[in-house]
Nucleic acid binder design. Structure first.
Length: 425
DNA sequence: TCTGGGGTCCTAGGACCC
DNA sequence: TCTGGGGTCCTAGGACCC
């Protein structure tokens, strides 16, 4: 292996080889598999041109016109009027993400999906099996294409951070390896914005003091950086010099710790101040959240309400429970109380959200009877979840004591059913 | 340009305890 | 009694990522 060691090379006992694999224009590419007519066209995934929402992904053709993800759909439509707008299909993306994961597992036992379309692989010590990094990367590239029909880009380095920045530089459909020891000189000419974790705000702050490139950052004094940007700023400077500085980007690959929060939120098609409608939405969001808690067998201690008004001002209000729960009724009641305590009555609401966190072991109850009862309720809800999977959302209606009042209310007033109310008979 | 939905991590202040 | 310091939990907000 051509190893060039400079003075900055960290003397670590074990030099790691990390791959970062990133699927190219993932959502768009998957949509093209289902509709080949989209190939080569300007495609925007995320919703229709006149809808409230933002771009999830844009094809390279659409990007030429300035369209990019997170841009409002209506803006994208103005910039690129001939673009084809398609709704996202999360199930399809999950399916293909799973396929990609399967491919990656052929190359290393340590695979960590960092999001739906990117993964880290610890390739340390796989040389005998897969050959040197570039050879392994090209094999991976080909295997990914033949198994999923999708392109990916691969970055290779001695840390997660380097690998991640590399895969971005390699796009589209490329491979880039930064030889150990060359980390600092690779990063130096790049804009600070290229560092994951440096967004609009941090970039602006750095620019204000004349820092534009990663190399500029490397020259700064640690004490100054710490004062100005905190612990993270210091770590960042370390990285800009090619050092392993701790934090997220240096933890081991595939240390799966499970989710830390589970949430659902909804932006209304039309802002509303109708209390019944708002509380019905809270109940529905709570149900969706609890359903996922049950799927993952999680019990949450903290329930958080998110409330966004028409002027986009947003508040969050949280409450921690005595006992962790996964019951719809408990989460919904907590969310509703928070809502009633904090909503400025009459003010028009744009978005509501329910988040749970503080996952804990199943509550130990002194009272055996109520423990048994709660287990029964949880089980009944799980069965109901499965029935809904098979027969649709409206297939099951549990005894009202177990549920929030949502369904009855919506029966009385079907008009209050929010957006997704497709009734299957 | 009128701004989704699902997350993670960090900061900072106050409560409370030792 | 005029007053320390560390640890942890809770809450609110915000930056950032895909």
């Amino acid at each position: 292996m051509a190893t060039i060691s400079g003075p900055n090379t960290p003397t670590l006992a074990a030099q790691r080889t990390i791959f970062h694999v990133d699927m190219d224009a993932f959502f768009v590419s998957v949509e093209e598999l289902f509709d080949p007519a989209l190939k080569g066209k300007a495609v925007v995934v995320g919703g229709q041109r006149d809808e409230r929402g933002v771009v999830s992904a844009a094809s390279y053709e659409a990007r030429k016109f300035g369209v990019h993800s997170a841009m409002p759909l209506r803006t994208a439509a103005k910039m690129c009027p001939h673009a084809i707008f398609v709704n996202g299909h999360p199930e399809r993306y999950r399916e293909y993400s799973g396929k990609a994961f399967g491919v990656l597992q052929h190359f290393s036992p340590k695979v960590e999906m960092a999001s739906i379309d990117e993964a880290y692989l610890d390739m340390t010590g796989t040389e005998r099996l897969h050959g040197p990094p570039l050879k392994a990367a090209h094999a991976l590239h080909q295997f990914m294409k033949s198994e999923t029909k999708l392109n990916c880009s691969i970055g290779i380095g001695t840390s997660r951070l380097i690998a991640k920045v590399c895969s971005d530089q390699a796009k589209p459909n490329g491979v880039l390896w930064i030889v150990p020891g060359q980390e600092a000189s690779f990063l130096a000419p790049l804009s600070v914005r290229k560092i994951p974790g440096v967004g609009k705000v941090m970039e602006q702050k750095l620019n204000e003091i004349g820092i534009k490139k990663v190399g500029d950052l490397a020259k700064l004094d640690d004490v100054f950086l710490r004062k100005r940007f905190g612990e993270w700023g210091m770590a960042l400077a370390g990285k800009s010099r090619g050092l392993d500085a701790g934090g997220y980007f240096d933890r081991d690959v595939a240390e799966d710790e499970g989710p830390k929060s589970v949430s659902h939120e909804h932006t209304f098609n039309n802002d509303t101040q109708d209390q019944e409608k708002l509380e019905a939405m809270l109940a529905r969001l709570s149900e969706m959240v609890c359903r996922r808690l049950r799927e993952h067998n999680l019990h949450a201690r903290t329930v958080q309400l998110k409330l966004r008004y028409s002027d986009f001002s947003t508040i969050t209000r949280a409450h921690s429970l005595e006992q962790p729960t996964q019951l719809d009724t408990v989460v919904a009641a907590t969310a509703r109380t928070l809502f009633r305590e904090n909503w400025e009555k009459g003010r028009t609401v744009r978005l509501l959200g329910v988040q749970t966190s503080g996952f804990d072991e199943q509550p130990l109850q002194l009272d055996l009877l109520s423990q048994v009862q709660e287990d029964k309720v949880s089980k009944a809800l799980s069965v109901a979840d499965k029935m809904r999977d098979r027969f649709g959302e409206n297939a099951v209606s549990l005894a009202t004591g177990l549920k929030s009042g949502f369904r009855e209310k919506t029966h009385e007033n079907p008009a209050s059913l929010p957006g997704k109310g497709k009734k299957k008979t």
